[in-house]
Amino acid sequence: MSEQIENRVIGLLRIIGVIFFLGVAVFPFYWMLLASLQPLIQTLQNPTQLWPTQIDFSAYVKVWTQFKFGRFFRNSAYLAMLTMALTVAFSTLAAYAIARLRFRGRSFMSRVILLIYMFPAIVIATPMYALYTKLGLRNNLNGLLLVYLAQTLPVGIYMLHSYFKTLPPDLEEAGLMDGCSRLGVIWRVTLPLSAPAIASVSLYTFMIAWNEFLFAFLFLDSPNSFTLSRGMMQIANNVNVSQQLTMAAAVIATLPVILIFLVFERHLIKGLTSGGVKG
């Protein structure tokens, strides 16, 4: 009897809880979209109105062309895609070496890689700023790319190396017996088996590079090399810029990463579940 009551209370609490959490998680995104789409005067005069009475895309056009967010978007995409591709390529090879090949320093490597990942960006920020100033690499997208790679490679190697260790080595050995080279085995056997892990590493590193703020903010000075994060600081510090424009910029920066996340998430879960059924 009391069990039933308790169950019913819990069921009710769950519904309320889910709605509450959903609302809180999504609301800032909804508000961002709303403020970017309705004329500024409505946001200011009637802040609590949650449904736009008038839709106005002009902020997006202005931000994209006049404030050069088209350019920033290309810079961000260039950095994020290159960071992703190079991280996946290099960390697959390195992770394979740590997981499968015998060499001196192997156990050291597998232990130290996670430690390096733990190094906080702010501790590296001062010397990196000094180093890049000294070398004249600030304000250079490729200079920033190197910084991002140094941040993402440890994560990528760590994730892939622990995944490779779960794969049975028999298949690779069969490939080697058949006269495949090591690299051939990695390409034909290991990579296809690791698709889910590679998808998650790709998604993760893309996200890190796309969202990165600190180094982009410290290093980039000229608008031609701005990323979206850096461009948002510029637009927000400009006193003549309205909330509407800032939020349009925020939507431009947020939307791609959310879309990619929603698409990839399905693949990820699919990959993980089918791998689990077969495993």
């Binding site: 889910v18 959490f21 959903l22 998680a25 999504v26 800032p28 995104f29 508000w31 961002m32 403020a35 996200m207 796309w210 969202n211 703020f213 979206l228 994060s229 948002m232 600081m233 927000a236 909330q243 800032t246 939020m247 910029a249 925020a250 939507v251 920066a253 947020t254 990463v257 959310i258 996340f261 929603l262 998430e265």
Partner: peptide, 24 residues
């Protein structure tokens, strides 16, 4: 779907959501 939405705050660029919070 609920699970995906719960993850949104974690995947969005910090600059964008920080400014949204500031305005809110």
């Amino acid at each position: 779907v609920v699970r995906s939405f719960f993850l949104l705050p974690y995947v969005a660029p910090v600059v964008a959501i920080a400014f949204a919070w500031r305005f809110i």
